Amino acid sequence: MDRFRDLSRRLRREQTLAEARLWQAVRAHRFGSRKFRRQHPIAGYIVDFVCIDAKLIVEVDGATHGSASEVARDSRRTRDLEACGFMVMRVQNEDVRTNLAGVLDAIWMELHHRATL
Rank of each mutant, 00 (worst) to 15 (best):
F4W: 08
R5F: 01
R5Q: 12
S8H: 12
R10C: 07
L11N: 14
L11G: 01
L11T: 04
E14R: 09
E14T: 10
Q15S: 14
T16F: 02
T16V: 07
T16L: 02
L17K: 12
L17G: 13
A18M: 10
E19V: 01
E19N: 03
R21Q: 14
R21M: 13
L22A: 04
L22M: 07
W23M: 11
Q24R: 15
A25F: 12
V26M: 10
R27K: 15
A28S: 14
A28L: 13
H29C: 08
R30A: 13
F31M: 06
F31A: 03
F31Q: 04
S33D: 12
S33G: 15
S33L: 12
S33P: 03
R34V: 12
F36C: 09
F36E: 00
R37I: 04
R38E: 00
R38H: 12
Q39E: 10
H40E: 08
H40W: 09
P41F: 03
A43P: 00
F49K: 04
V50I: 03
V50D: 03
V50L: 03
V50W: 02
D53F: 08
A54G: 02
K55D: 00
L56S: 10
I57N: 06
I57M: 07
I57R: 09
I57C: 06
I57S: 00
E59T: 06
E59F: 08
V60G: 04
D61H: 13
D61E: 14
D61M: 04
G62A: 02
T64E: 14
T64S: 14
A68D: 13
S69G: 06
E70L: 10
A72Y: 08
A72S: 10
R73L: 00
S75Q: 15
S75N: 12
R76F: 06
R77T: 01
R77E: 06
T78A: 03
T78G: 03
T78W: 09
T78E: 08
R79S: 07
R79P: 01
D80T: 01
L81M: 04
A83P: 00
C84D: 02
C84G: 00
M87V: 07
M87S: 07
M89H: 05
R90W: 09
Q92W: 13
Q92K: 09
E94P: 03
D95L: 05
D95C: 06
V96N: 05
N99V: 05
N99A: 15
N99P: 00
L100C: 06
A101N: 12
G102P: 01
V103Y: 02
L104Q: 02
D105V: 04
A106E: 15
A106K: 03
I107N: 09
E110W: 14
H112E: 15
H113W: 04
H113N: 15
H113S: 15
R114S: 09
R114A: 11
R114C: 06
A115N: 10
A115L: 11
A115G: 09
